[in-house]
Simulated assay, not measured.
Amino acid sequence: MTDGPCRVFLVDDHAVFRSGVRAELAGQSAIEVVGEAGSVGEAVAGIGRVRPDVVLLDVHMPDGGGVAVLRSVLGADPGGVADPARAPEPTFLALSVSDAAEDVIAVIRAGARGYVTKTITGDDLADAVRRVADGDAVFSPRLAGFVLDAFARAAPGPEERGEPVHDPEVDSLTPREKEVLRLLARGYTYREIAEELFISVKTVETHASNVLRKTQQSNRHALTRWAQSRHLD
């Protein structure tokens, strides 16, 4: 997370609920609510305008819901090369009344970093916001199991089937860059990667930048999906 308070944007089609969340977060340290929206269109425009660190995202809304917001924001430039001058994409934390497995899996596949239900307390919600901003994956109890089960049931890739794999983008990565890529895809923060590999945070940032450039991914969320599709996570 960058220096200063974590800048949060609220997306929910119920204005009363948004007011309640805003009030809960207002008393929390190191968190600042910088905007809110009640529809997909308003959310996409607002996120693009204020560039928050974290988006608290409702799953079900009349005009498409959380997945539509994720696809619009994170999928706007699929396969593009990261622009160093452009602000990083926000991290998304789903906040929903639903605890259905299909809802959890859908938003995680679309790029959300975590999923918590609306029964969460204000203190726990603030903690979840800070954690996803720092690169952690956060789930309400038992919801993480849905995601693990979904990926465990995924069809095996060529490596698991014993078939040779030739991918120019993967082959272009150095062994160290592959190590950094795997840890990024598993949700490690730069500081945690540095500790794991016994290198400096600055070196991790350099490797991560090289990985984004070589794989032609525009942000960390896209890179994670790219790594998962090649079973590199």
Rank of each mutant, 00 (worst) to 15 (best):
D123R: 12
P84W: 03
D53K: 12
S29N: 11
Q28N: 04
G79Q: 09
G66P: 11
A82T: 03
G80A: 15
G65D: 09
P78H: 05
D83N: 15
V132L: 04
A106I: 01
D127P: 00
S29W: 02
A26D: 15
Q28E: 15
D58Q: 11
D103C: 07
L125N: 07
F139A: 00
A37G: 14
G122E: 01
H14G: 02
G79K: 11
R18T: 02
V16T: 10
D77H: 15
A133T: 01
A85H: 06
E102I: 07
V40F: 05
G111N: 02
R86K: 14
L70F: 01
F139K: 04
A100F: 08
G114N: 01
P88G: 00
S39C: 11
A137V: 01
S72P: 02
S19G: 15
V107M: 00
A110S: 06
D58L: 09
D58T: 08
E102H: 12
D127V: 03
A76C: 10
P78Q: 04
A30W: 07
V16Q: 08
T91A: 15
V116W: 08
D123F: 05
F139I: 03
A110P: 01
I120Q: 07
D77T: 14
P52I: 06
G46D: 06
G66T: 13
V81Q: 08
T121H: 04
V54F: 06
A37E: 03
D136C: 03
E24T: 10
V116I: 13
L125H: 04
R131S: 06
V50F: 07
L93C: 03
A110C: 04
A106F: 00
V50S: 14
A37L: 06
S19I: 06
D63G: 07
L57C: 06
A110D: 01
A68D: 03
G135E: 04
Q28W: 00
P84G: 01
A43Y: 11
H60A: 15
V138P: 05
A76S: 15
Q28P: 04
V67C: 03
A100H: 11
Q28Y: 05
G48R: 13
V97N: 06
V129R: 01
Y115T: 02
A126F: 05
E42R: 13
P62Y: 09
D83P: 13
L95Y: 14
A15Q: 13
V73A: 12
I47R: 03
G64E: 13
I31W: 09
G27Y: 09
V44Q: 05
H60D: 14
V55S: 09
F92Y: 08
I108G: 00
G114D: 00
A43S: 13
A101C: 09
